[in-house]
Design a binder for these strands. Structure first.
Lengths: 126, 126
DNA sequence: GCTTGACTTAGAGCGAACTTTAAGGTTTAG
DNA sequence: CTAAACCTTAAAGTTCGCTCTAAGTCAAGC
């Protein structure tokens, strides 16, 4: 059982963010102490790690919430989850390809400017 | 000379967005007809294409505005612009590497689920 | 027992990048 | 001449993902 501060340190998310995620339905219900303090379990930590993993690849909190909702429904949603993950993965792959294309453009732009800079600064060396 | 609608079609940006970009200082000042309508030049289109290029690699509008401001100042800012673009390019490259790492995690997650799905659905085939 | 600091809530605020609205002027086809 | 389509502005609204505030409760050290 971990306090919100401990979980904050373990996950790198602020306590504010952890409460926010819970409010948004990403964590189901977190256990509470007698006095109402949140008590995170190792399972919660696992889920949080999954959240970060999906978030880091650009999945929206809404989609993550949907995915975790399905997880809580048990094994009969496995197929849906696999499909969701596959769709997400393909989206990310496509995005990365796009990104590469755009980056190539930036690189060409950069080369153009570098050349122009040489032409501009070069004469001073004479 | 192009109307805002024509430019919207050519760039894929809405007329609203084009006005918004101008207001945010991304386009300097666009020429106007007698009656006050915007008249975009081919130069403007070039600049817009550059904006999209930078935006597509995740540069913020603020940074793009800064870059274009430097462009308008002429050749003495070439070095600064090259440095800006290089910094941006490195940031994007780092991001893409990060993305790949995170995506690998998603892929492993997906494989795990696919396996679990096979185990869950498999028995039904017997 | 009291202070300090961590916890609780609901709700307001923020920055980015638009997007929409309101209220009006212009152009053009019939 | 008028209606429809397109233009203008300033400013308010939206979505996302937090982030912060206020006002109060609880726990631990001295």
């Amino acid at each position: 059982m971990y306090s919100i501060q401990e979980v904050s340190q373990k996950t790198g998310l602020t306590a504010h963010t952890l409460r926010f995620y819970e409010k948004e339905g990403l964590l189901g219900s977190v256990e509470r102490s007698e006095s109402g303090f949140r008590q995170y379990t190792d399972d919660d930590l696992e889920v949080l790690s999954g959240i970060c993993c999906l978030k880091n690849t650009g999945m929206s909190l809404r989609e993550i919430a949907r995915f975790l909702e399905l997880s809580r429904e048990g094994d009969q949603t496995l197929r849906q989850r696999v499909e969701l993950l596959e769709a997400h993965r393909n989206k990310v792959l496509a995005q990365m390809e796009q990104m590469q294309t755009h980056l190539d453009k930036v690189t060409r732009k950069l080369n153009y400017y570098t050349e122009k800079l040489r032409a501009y600064e070069g004469p001073e060396r004479d």
